[in-house]
């Protein structure tokens, strides 16, 4: 029964190989199955998921107002020291002094997109943006100031 086993092996082997070739042949003849995402070409239509964690941004409204109170909860929550908040004392119209942010420094190069700062923020001042093309030629460009120049805190945010 040696011969039977010998030719049985050959038969099974050839059949298994042909099975694989049938599959690759199928995909070769069905270009519709192609799965490639032509990335730089589809930039205009590319839609990221709304939760995608690209970078931390601070939304400003039309009056150039943000919601950051300068409480530094995000700075504490950040595991990498990505966020540095420089605060100042701002004179209110009623004469009282109030803590406000001077600059909200965000080091994108240190950020791991863990979302802990956004979760920690009590006033929803920072959110994750869906951008993902972060490459720059100079590392300095990755250090960002999130509050726009001349912006101030929104009315009613404590």
């Amino acid at each position: 029964m040696f011969l039977k086993e010998y030719f049985g092996t050959i038969f099974r082997s050839v059949r298994s190989l042909l099975k694989g070739m049938k599959l690759t042949g199928y995909y070769f003849t069905h270009p519709k199955e192609i799965h490639t995402e032509e990335y730089p070409d589809n930039r205009a239509t590319l839609q990221m998921f709304d939760r995608f964690k690209g970078e931390v941004v601070m939304p400003h409204d039309d009056n150039n107002e943000h919601r950051c109170t300068g409480c530094q909860a995000c700075e504490i929550a950040c595991p990498n020291g990505t966020i540095k908040i420089i605060t100042k004392q701002e004179l209110q119209p009623d004469g009282k002094k109030k803590k406000a942010i001077d600059t909200f420094v965000y080091h994108l190069e240190l950020c791991t997109m863990c979302n802990l700062c956004v979760v920690a923020c009590p006033s929803d001042a920072i959110v994750m943006a869906q951008t993902f093309e972060h490459s720059v030629y100079d590392k300095k460009q990755l250090k960002k100031v999130l509050n726009k120049p001349g912006s101030k805190i929104m009315e009613g945010v404590e």
Binding site: Y27, E33, I34, T36
Partner: peptide, 9 residues
């Protein structure tokens, strides 16, 4: 050939 078999372009 490789690309088309590998569902690539």
């Amino acid at each position: 050939v490789a690309a088309f078999m590998q569902i690539r372009l």
